[in-house]
């Protein structure tokens, strides 16, 4: 009894009046910092600090050791005129828009098929798997399949087809893009399918009764009602596509050298200008990383603006 009495009184005695609340609230407040501080500290050291650091480094010329020399915004000016950066930038945008477009188109086609299919779970799990496989492995298998004397050409050779140079410099980026579609389509199908599965079945039944065929059911029921999940998936793709590194790097890149600059994207440019070529242009590489991040952040904001409407309730 006394215990209960004490506890009921405890908050009134120990906290100033403006912070008074139920005993549970008080306890929650008390545990907030001990619970959140360790994660926050590590986050500050490895995310906040380096983000501020990279801004500072990008304004200087620096080889990682020795004195920095101040360049202000000159790194950024040089970047915009650098053909290698322009290629890397346009490759990143191609991945974002073209590869992304293909990923979403394919995901929608797969969603439409998987929604009313037998063996849906099994098919979905198998399509999903490449997302979890190391990009290096996929790139090297892709390379063995498509290189000049590779598997695909030897199979085609059986039908009398002349060997095709799938991976020569003009085709290489297209093949890389195709590989990315293949890797990612499973993830986005899964996400979109999860949203589509929440659409009530009676809407489809009513549409069927009204005489809608498969395409019309897709166009007038699935598409409008999965808008929210597609918008989230598009933001996720934007964030993930700028991170792509090892899949491109393993095309001709090894621990010793880099793939041709014609296939570089943002991450490869940063690596190539800093550690990858022993150029160690830390300031320049940092500026490129930030510039690219800025463009992609703007893209995310734009995407949210364009797709933001009242959330659908159904």
């Amino acid at each position: 009894m006394t215990l209960l009495h004490e506890r009921r009184d405890a908050p009134t005695r120990s906290v100033p009046p403006e912070r008074r609340g139920s005993p549970v609230d008080v306890m929650r407040r008390r545990m907030f910092w001990p619970f959140v501080a360790p994660a926050t500290a590590l986050f500050v050291v490895f995310f906040v600090g380096p983000t501020i650091g990279v801004i500072w480094i990008s304004l200087n010329e620096w080889a990682g050791a020795g004195p920095m020399s101040w360049r202000g915004l000159k790194n950024y000016v040089t970047l915009v005129q650098d053909p290698t950066f322009q290629t890397a930038f346009s490759n990143s945008m191609k991945i974002l828009v073209l590869v992304g477009g293909c990923v979403f188109l394919a995901s929608f086609a797969l969603t439409a098929a998987l929604r009313e299919m037998k063996g849906k779970r099994l098919a979905r799990s198998i399509i999903f798997f490449p997302v979890l496989v190391s990009g290096i492995v996929i790139a090297l298998v892709w390379g063995i399949l498509f290189q000049h004397g590779g598997t695909v050409n030897s199979v085609l050779g059986n039908f009398g087809v002349e060997p095709i140079s799938w991976l020569n410099s003009s085709n290489m980026f297209t093949m890389i893009g195709l590989g990315m579609v293949w890797i990612n389509v499973g993830l986005y199908t899964t996400i979109i399918l999860a949203g589509v599965d929440r659409i009530p079945i009676y809407l489809y039944e009513e549409a069927s009764l009204a005489g809608a065929n498969a395409w019309q059911r897709f166009r007038y029921v699935t598409l409008p009602l999965s808008r929210d999940v597609v918008s989230v998936a598009a933001v996720l793709w934007t964030i993930e596509s700028i991170k792509i590194f090892e899949f491109i790097f393993a095309f001709g890149g090894t621990t010793n050298d880099m793939p041709p600059t014609s296939v570089w994207n943002s991450a490869l440019f940063v690596y190539g200008e800093s550690f990858g070529s022993s150029a160690y242009r830390f300031g320049y590489a940092s500026a490129s990383a930030l510039l690219m991040l800025l463009v992609f952040t703007a893209f995310v904001v734009l995407l949210r603006r364009l797709t933001h409407r009242e959330p659908l309730e159904f």
Binding site: F46, P50, Y271, S274, F275, V300
Partner: peptide
């Protein structure tokens, strides 16, 4: 404070490794 921290962590997901790698190496 809590919602600010939550947002900060979510933004962390959006920061790619190539932005962090140079300062982390130096550090």
């Amino acid at each position: 404070m809590a919602s600010g921290l939550t947002v900060a962590f979510v933004m962390g997901i959006g920061i790619p490794s190539q932005v962090l790698v140079i300062p982390i190496f130096v550090m």
